[in-house]
């Protein structure tokens, strides 16, 4: 299991090199969403007794925990197809679990840093919420789910081009349908049931409730935990499949 430290340290060193470029890039989308939806569209909107900005910030945090954790798949593919660094890990005496664990931790770290940027922007916009234990736990679990999914899928894709398909078919629909920008209760009942199959829906609901100072439903945490563990072991299996 020690090998995961090497994989994680490598990702941290790269992250450190890029951090000055990453922070502005993590800030652009939330800023645009807050300006466009928070100010322009939702300025006088009330969502369940909260301003739209208060509604939006936890949603953006949930979405960012998903997108940035999932972004580790692009990093893996660049190092796999372009730099062939994945071969160095395959030749080393480390288990598949260690490799997946290192990459998942790296994805979660990226996610947490990007969330910190969003919360800072929210603070600048005057939004103050409760960032308690349940809030951070839901974010951690959500980033775990999507980092594990990212590692598994990164092992299955055959080229860089496949990677953009994953974003188009998995991440973008989930970002818009997982309750980031609107309460899913406004959708037809059948659609709400369908959306409960998405992990982001559970994460958004839990994060938002915690941010409002309420106790989230424990079932959301259990669902995230369960899906995360399943994705993690699928990823471990997929690492072996990545060999010729």
């Amino acid at each position: 299991m020690k090998g995961f430290i090497a994989v994680y340290v490598r990702e941290l060193l790269i992250l450190r090199r890029r951090i000055t470029r990453l922070i502005p890039s993590w800030s652009v989308s939330p800023l645009l969403y807050l300006l466009a939806f928070g100010y322009a569209v939702g300025r006088h909107m009330d969502v369940g007794g909260h301003t739209y900005m208060e509604f939006l910030i936890p949603g953006l945090a949930a979405m960012s925990s998903m997108t940035q954790a999932f972004a580790i798949s692009s990093e893996i593919n660049v190092s796999r197809f372009y730099w062939h660094i994945f071969e160095e890990f395959q030749a080393a005496p480390i288990s598949n679990i260690s490799y997946v664990l290192g990459e998942v931790f790296a994805g979660m770290t990226r996610a947490l840093l990007s969330i910190a940027v969003i919360l800072l922007i929210g603070y600048i916009f005057g939004v103050t919420l409760s960032y308690n234990f349940w809030f951070w736990l839901a974010l951690l679990l959500n980033s775990f789910v999507f980092a594990a999914l990212a590692v598994g899928l990164a092992m299955l894709v055959k080229s860089h081009a496949d990677q953009s398909l994953l974003n188009s078919f998995i991440i973008t629909p989930m970002a818009f349908l997982g309750g980031t920008f609107f309460p899913i209760e406004r959708l037809p009942e059948w659609a709400q049931y369908a959306l409960y199959f998405l992990p982001l829906t559970h994460a958004t609901k839990a994060i938002r409730k915690a941010a409002y100072g309420d106790l989230p439903l424990m079932v959301s945490y259990l669902v995230l935990c369960g899906i995360g563990v399943v994705f993690f072991f699928i990823a471990v299996f997929c690492v072996n499949k990545a060999k010729d």
Partner: peptide, 10 residues
Amino acid sequence: PQSTNLDHEL
């Protein structure tokens, strides 16, 4: 290996 598999950023 035949092709360089070093981390060029590091």
